[in-house]
Write a protein that binds this DNA or RNA. Structure first.
Lengths: 208, 208, 208, 208
DNA sequence: GATGAATGAGTCTTCATTCAT
DNA sequence: GATGAATGAAGACTCATTCAT
């Protein structure tokens, strides 16, 4: 039996698709379970059963439970940031503070609609993971892009690089904490009530 | 068989003491292990062995692993706050901002010396736990005291109660994040470098 | 409820017996399975099922599969040697060569009747295990006894200690190989045909 | 479609060559891994990865893991013996005992330089494997050659065939045990100290 | 109150083997 | 012949919890 070049291509892409399907199923099943039952209470067994693949198949694509967790969080986190940055670019805002506020607002609104993702990210997003992202060229592009983007905007302003980085860090941490607390726990108030306070604070932080 | 009031008292206090010894041993063993090996890698077996009691004894004093975790964190957290507040009171500071800064500085310095405790608290201190504290009369006292203390100080300032509570919440959350990140991970800078930025920010937050 | 001293003693010995029963069941089940199915094809699951205990109970008494293997082999090997030595002592033989031959003959006959044990021992008895025996006072007694026994007999003869130890080692190794090969594999001849050749060789070895 | 004799030959040799490359790679990878990591800890996956072939290819040339183990050991063992015999022939020794000693000494020195091979052979060389060799014409040649060689040498001596075979067997077994124990474990002494004792013993064994 | 032997469901992980391409 | 994704049974080991003493 022999195949034309076109047929062969179809075969390969089919094979690739099949591979992708199983891996994608695992990603989706794991995400669903992690956000529903929690990471701790989700076993590899649960994941493969939901994904409809054999247990061995899991270990074909992931080293262990923590590998898939990290990859999911990285994927989701960079996806949100990417969306936020793109949406902001479209707005073509000129003021530096406006840009930061717009990005943060976009992310807040996104997480408000994806409470489960917020829970997952909050408890597991760390600087260690961020370093992994930098080691991974695919994710790196976005991360690096953001870095450059902020630096560019910053340079137009007159602020020391270190000082700015620390402030940015504090803004991110504060935003994360407020999101988690107000969206998930409604504490000390819901997100709609917290937002003005948060934005006011961020503006203060950014004002020299 | 009957006892005099004095005998009864002796019995109870004896029982309480005996109970206290085993319970205290369990608390201390668990704290040592949680901060050393981490919560996940500490088993009940490890705890009872270190405490020198039988396995069944654990279940005499605690419902399960999570029960003891919560109680330890609550104990430690309120103990730190208590110390911080007392130290601040002794200073007899008059300025509202100075008081807040002093309390926070005290806590930061304490956690800098107790990195293991910082790790434990950061990953497990939540508002859910705070609600538990309110249900526990002993801890409640401290929490309530702190609340009143801050409110008193605040009332001297002209700020809306709600607004102030939200700001306070943000200050606490931000401080927690900065502590963890700079003390444990040295990211984005060590605590000595972060402190001025943090205090500057807190002052901005408190400034009307 | 209270117990007399006698009752308490009964309770303790009962508990001890129960413990012994489970452990003994595990030993016996494992021995039976190792000699029947082989070590490689016997799982912990097989052992606990045959022993009629829970899986966790296995790990109460043994670290892992290799722990129980070693302990069984050590137990059995020292038991055979003990029997052989005792039987030889009863004979009150005076000649040094006769004693060695008698001990070896006893062991050969014992292993001929316990082919399964022979298989197990042959493939797993090593000097590493011997060192373990020395670390274990219980087994040590027998091992040390044998050592002293041979040394005593030897001293009556005029031979250098090292030379003798090496020769003894070779006798033991040769005997082991011949036993395994002739009893289990009937190669190059059965044990009855091999024995005269072996004994002749041993006598040559012992003759100065 | 038909081929000339020459074409057919080319096809076969080509197929054989292709087959040989993959098969040889598998042999070499497996040998390297078995001697390095040990048989138990080497998986088919390890072998094919090291050999640079697909997993399925392994099953094209070998039935299973034990098949390749046996074939490797057989190959290596007969190769050593072949070398030893050839080296001895070149010496043109006349004395029967000298020949045996020379062969054994050659093998000992070879194994001393190839400790990993010694380990592999010792734990897995059995008479069962020897029977396989007889079924395999390729290996048979060498084995049969050796047999004839010894018988020839022996016939010049006056000894019963059976007796001699048994003695030879014992010499081989003893040599194997001493090699393994003294070269690998240095027990009860290193090979340089054991050699004189071993040779003395072999000479005794061969002396009628 | 205190003990600690016993439990067994639950979890991760491996790996020889198959088979559609 | 060659591939390598997929399989899933099999295995080792853990540990919170119970309960008879």
């Amino acid at each position: 039996m022999s195949f034309t070049a076109k047929e062969k291509l179809t075969q390969i892409s089919k094979r690739t698709d099949n591979k992708s399907i199983k891996e994608k199923n695992l990603y989706e099943a794991a995400y669903e379970l992690f956000t529903t039952k929690g990471i701790y209470d989700t076993s590899i067994d649960d994941i493969v059963k939901k994904a409809g693949v054999a247990k061995g198949t899991f270990y074909l694509y992931f080293m262990n439970k923590y590998d898939i967790i990290d990859r999911i969080i990285l994927k989701k986190a960079s996806s949100i940031i990417e969306k936020a940055v793109k949406a902001t670019e479209e707005k073509a805002l000129s003021d530096y503070t406006d840009i930061v506020i717009y990005v943060i607002d976009y992310i807040i609104e996104y997480l408000r609609e994806n409470k489960k993702l917020l829970k997952l990210i909050h408890k597991n997003l760390s600087w260690g993971l961020y370093r992994k992202a930098l080691a991974n060229p695919e994710e790196y592009k976005i991360m690096e892009y953001i870095r450059k983007y902020f630096i560019k905007v910053i340079n137009e302003n007159n602020m020391k690089a270190e000082e700015l980085e620390n402030n940015l860090f504090m803004i991110i941490e504060l935003t994360g904490s407020v999101c988690y607390s107000s969206i998930i726990l409604q504490e000390p108030a819901n997100i709609d009530e917290m937002k003005p306070a948060l934005f006011k604070m961020i503006k203060k932080m950014l004002a020299n």
